[in-house]
Amino acid sequence: MLATTALITGALHEDGLADTADGLGGGRTRERKLEIMRDSRIGTYGVCALILSFGLRWSALAAIADPWAVMLALCAAHAAARAGVPAFMSLVAPARTDGLSAGAGSPPGRSVAIAFAVGTLVLALTLGPGKALVGLVLLSLAGLMLARLAIRQIGGQTGDILGAFEQLGEILILLVAASFPLGH
Rank of each mutant, 00 (worst) to 15 (best):
D98F: 03
A95G: 06
A65W: 00
D19V: 13
P108L: 14
R82L: 13
A73W: 03
V70T: 01
P107M: 11
A6H: 12
T97Q: 08
S40R: 12
P94K: 05
R148E: 12
W58A: 15
A77V: 09
I64K: 00
G130Y: 08
L50I: 05
L175P: 10
L174P: 13
L17M: 10
M145T: 07
G23W: 02
L149Y: 10
R96I: 01
I171C: 06
P129D: 05
A3L: 15
L24D: 10
A79W: 06
S179P: 03
L172N: 08
D15S: 06
L50C: 04
L141C: 14
G43L: 02
L7R: 14
L168I: 08
G23T: 02
G135L: 09
L139C: 13
I42L: 07
G46P: 02
Q153F: 08
S179I: 07
S140F: 14
L7Q: 10
A87T: 05
G183E: 12
A65G: 01
L136K: 10
S90L: 13
M37C: 07
T120C: 14
L127V: 07
G46C: 01
S90G: 12
L149A: 14
L146F: 02
P94I: 03
I51H: 07
I171A: 04
A177L: 07
L133N: 02
L61W: 00
A21R: 08
M71C: 15
R41F: 03
L91Q: 11
A104V: 09
G183I: 14
A164T: 03
S53F: 12
Q167H: 09
I151W: 02
S106V: 11
Q167Y: 05
L127M: 07
